[in-house]
């Protein structure tokens, strides 16, 4: 068996091992050194950042956590950066979710990103956790006309009518911005279809920014920028946005060191690079094998024909 044949029939576990090394080694190195790659923000991330940056102080922002712990590796950094940016902008944050398994994630994000940054915020006045509602896009349709019908209480069981910051919230149009971090169905696509689209061309269209996984990004590209003012695509989008948010926070708090916990996405770009390089390498090797073997079989059959 020639080298090429052996390479072609390689046990896929060697590929697995290479991938494990390509990701794990950079993580250890970066973890020990704290190094990061510089980020050059792309257009969709910049648009996201600018949409939030343009919010006035006290803007009402609905933040839907539509993901589960399984995709948190990709999406939690976005949720964190969004939350910190909102804290920085002194926005009023209304958290909710349409994914049952996201309820603990909301509490964690609020605690880790909003309250550590500004500990004097008051629940019910500056931020609220409205919890989970079953019903997928059905919920979206209902909150488009009557928010409190779908969310009669918050996650702590308090009536939404009794929460100070819920005063004046009638439906999704009452919010200055809707933020969605989504991993699948129901997610950003449904938010565009059922919440944003019906308001297009009618007075004040709803503003939406979304953080999405790499796999759903291609489907959402057509909605940007008319139906979606911003989009963070995959961990790269998260890293770019995180970088911009950190710059703003650094500028606002000179001399205060930035906790490294807030560079999660940027840290993950290094394993990302090596993973991608491995993939590219594999594709090149795969094709080299293919072409070499094709030439061999052609010259082989030519020889047979001559004989």
């Amino acid at each position: 068996m020639s080298f090429i044949d052996r390479l072609d029939a390689i046990d896929r576990r060697w590929i697995f091992l290479m991938m494990a090394c390509a990701v794990a080694i950079p993580i250890i190195v970066i973890g020990l050194t704290g190094a990061r790659f510089p980020e050059v923000p792309g257009p969709t991330s910049t648009a996201t950042f600018e949409t939030i940056e343009a919010l006035p102080e006290g803007a009402k922002v609905l933040f839907s956590f539509d993901f589960d712990p399984a995709s948190a590796g990709e999406l939690q950094p976005m949720a964190n950066a969004f939350m910190r940016h909102l804290g920085q902008k002194k926005a009023k944050v209304y958290c909710q979710t349409l994914w049952a398994s996201a309820t603990p994630l909301i509490e964690e994000t609020l605690k880790k990103c909003l309250l550590t940054q500004s500990p004097d915020l008051v629940y019910g006045v500056d931020y609220v956790n409205l919890g989970y509602q079953a019903g997928n896009e059905g919920v979206m349709k209902v909150i488009s006309t009557d928010y409190k019908q779908s969310f009669p209480t918050d996650a702590k069981g308090t009536r939404t009518t009794a929460i100070p910051m819920m005063e004046g919230i009638e439906n999704t149009s009452s919010f200055d911005l809707i933020m969605v971090v989504s991993a699948g169905y129901p997610g950003s696509k449904e938010w565009v279809q059922y919440v944003v689209s019906p308001t297009l061309g009618k007075g004040k269209p709803i503003q939406l920014v979304a953080g999405v996984t790499g796999v759903s990004a291609p489907q959402l590209v057509p909605y940007f920028p008319t139906q979606m003012q911003g989009m963070l695509a995959a961990i790269k989008g998260a890293a770019e946005y995180e970088y911009m948010v950190n710059e703003v926070i650094k500028a606002a708090n000179p001399g205060k060191p930035l906790p490294p916990a807030y560079m999660e996405a940027q840290r993950r770009m290094a394993p990302q690079l090596f993973g991608h390089l491995l993939m590219v390498g594999l594709i090149i090797v795969g094709n080299t094998i293919f072409f070499v073997k094709r030439r061999q079989s052609r010259s082989g059959s030519a020889m047979k024909a001559a004989a």
Binding site: M19, V23, A24, I27, I28, G31, A70, S71, A72, G73, E74, T213, G214, V215, A217, P218, A233, A234, I235, K236, R268, P271, Q272, G275, H276, M279
Partner: peptide, 23 residues
């Protein structure tokens, strides 16, 4: 194109698991 785009997310998920183990 969609395949290429997705690779990114999948690697990030594995990176997150590695961080959990190491950290």
């Amino acid at each position: 194109a969609a395949f290429g785009f997705t690779v990114m997310g999948r690697i990030a998920l594995f990176a997150a698991r590695c961080e959990f183990i190491f950290d």
